[in-house]
Amino acid sequence: MLTDTLAKAILDLEEEQVIVLVKERLAKGDSPLDIVESLQKGMSEVGKLFETGEFFLSELVMCGEIMKDAMEVLEPHLIDSVSGNKGNIVVGTVKGDIHDLGKNIVVMLLKGAGYNVIDLGVDVPIENFVEAAKESKAPLIGISVLLTGCQEAMKKTIDAIRAEGLNTKVIIGGNYIDELVREYVGADYFANNASDGLRVAKQIFS
């Protein structure tokens, strides 16, 4: 059971209540990052209920919309707390996958933490990742994925980046990813949620 009222409101798909609670917590002086964590907790519950067939697709979509609205409220606060540019990070959703919700949350958090994020969008061709990596000399590339069927594309993208001999780390992020997937596609790190991704970035740029 979720004890966090904000996470619970997301789980109940209480659109208006979520926004009210986000604003309340901001007003109380809670850290925007903690608020994002609550949102994600609720969202991952919704994801689980969708997987078990208890929730329907339209509810998953609605949850995404609520998250988007909540992140819009949070965005200025995430950016406010930043000083300076900590470096470049390239982010995109892998070729063949058009899901952008998880990616957008990570992008927002990374921007909020002071990184210069080069967002390549969704269904990103392999060469776009390679080009952006070369051009920006980013020490970190993040590849977002939701669909399990896109593993080959992830592997090919990472192979191509490696083939250029770039000194860059690659993190893959997605709900289903684990150590096995990371190893198979040849990434350096993996993350199942946005805050894990943020931690890896901190580690690399420190």
Binding site: L13, F56, S58, E59, V61, M62, E65
Partner: peptide
């Protein structure tokens, strides 16, 4: 019926 909430 946004997102089919009432239907569901």
């Amino acid at each position: 019926d946004k997102f089919g909430r009432n239907y569901l």
